[in-house]
Amino acid sequence: MEFETIIWHGLAAFLTLCIFTFLYKDNPFYKFAERLVAGVAAGYWTMLVFHKLFVDKVYHTMATGQYAYIIPILLGIGMWTRFSKKHSWISRYSIAFYIGISTGVSIPVYMYTYIFRQISATIIPFTSISNVLVVIFVLCALFYFFFSKAHTGAFNIVSKIGIYTLMIGFGAGFGLTVMGRVALLVQRILFLKDYVREVAAFIGG
């Protein structure tokens, strides 16, 4: 193991421990790691944006004569007018365009992913108890999200079944994800253990 690797791994181990100290309470070590990671991420992201967006989408598109890109470039420049009190209204057009386009693109995607695919997958024959329960519970869960009807009387019962169905699903999801998080913790602890071994091997020659 090279000395340089020991140093870099040592830094990673130190920062991991700094973050873990948060389990006790907020402290200067955590603050240091937090600000370091936030600062490094902000700097890294800025350079990423510069290369992936400015160089690729602005400089190269103009250099290669793809002048249609002038429209998003102008909208992007419009965002910079926020720094001027007099002209900041221009930025609202850029924001409106951005949100309008994003929403417009999202609608068919949502319609396909969350409605058509789900409904198609739920139209199943009543050939088993399991299939019958799937259809009933889906209907009850959908009913829970009815907002223009008070959940009283029979509606309340259906709505209650719906929310219990959702909670069973959420419980399963919770357990599954917690298992994944525990795996991440184990991975980090193994990293620390390996680092201790690396150092011991380095010192031992």
Binding site: I119, F126, L142, F146
Partner: peptide, 23 residues
């Protein structure tokens, strides 16, 4: 929001009738 509720009602109907028919 009201339109969403109507949309959901139609989907529930489609789901139920669809499941009966596919059976």
């Amino acid at each position: 929001l009201k339109a969403q509720d109507w949309g959901k009602a139609i989907l529930m109907l489609l789901l139920l009738i669809g499941a009966i028919l596919i059976s």
